[in-house]
């Protein structure tokens, strides 16, 4: 064995090297540190707070860093009744979040308007912004929110992140690699 090969190969670091797809690594990083934007609008926000507190502990899923600035968030949890008066504010806050971003519609009201079949209530936040996960319940239990968060993590882990984020670069690489 030539001497330079022996220096390049170090058996001590062998166990620390992982081969994987770039997307898988990127998604793994993203899905385990989701920073939620707590869009608490009604009683669902109480359950959202309970989910963040010690008993249910959303930190187990890496999503404990609730930020009240949309610019530091990547998942918006719409928790509560979205009135028309509030709707455009919710949309504006969503637009201020940097990409990549996801939305959880927590509870019946955020998903469909819930029991408020009324002149004043938007019948589901998905009429304004794209929703990734809907959670049923009025309000949902903290376990349901955690289940929704895990669903979102599954969804993120299946995303083609690199191609979504850098479509031109991905195309060039594909051409170069044949």
């Amino acid at each position: 064995m030539p001497e330079k090969w022996a220096t390049a190969y170090d058996s001590k670091i062998e166990g620390n090297v992982i081969f994987t797809r770039f997307d898988a690594a990127l998604n793994w990083v993203r899905k385990n540190s989701l920073w939620p934007m707590p869009m608490g609008l009604a009683c669902c926000a109480i359950e959202l707070m309970a989910t963040a507190a010690s008993r249910f502990d959303i930190a187990r899923f890496g999503a404990e860093v609730m930020r009240f600035s949309p610019r530091q968030c990547d998942v918006m949890i719409v928790a509560g009744t979205v009135t028309y008066k509030m709707a455009l504010a919710v949309k504006r806050i969503y637009e201020q979040m940097p990409e990549p971003k996801w939305v959880i519609a927590m509870g019946a009201c955020a998903s469909t308007g819930g029991m408020y079949r009324s002149y004043a209530v938007l019948q589901g936040i998905d009429q304004l912004i794209p929703v990734d996960v809907y959670i049923s319940g009025c309000p949902p239990r903290p376990e349901a929110l955690l289940a929704g968060l895990m669903k979102l993590q599954e969804k993120i882990s299946r995303e083609r992140s690199f191609r979504n984020q850098k479509p031109e670069l991905a195309e060039k690489l594909e051409e170069a690699l044949g």
Binding site: Y84, A87, L88, R117, S118, Y119, L122
Partner: peptide
Amino acid sequence: DVAFTNVTPMEGGPFV
């Protein structure tokens, strides 16, 4: 830029 309203679908609404 302020607000909008739509007609709410009443199908399935239990309150009419």
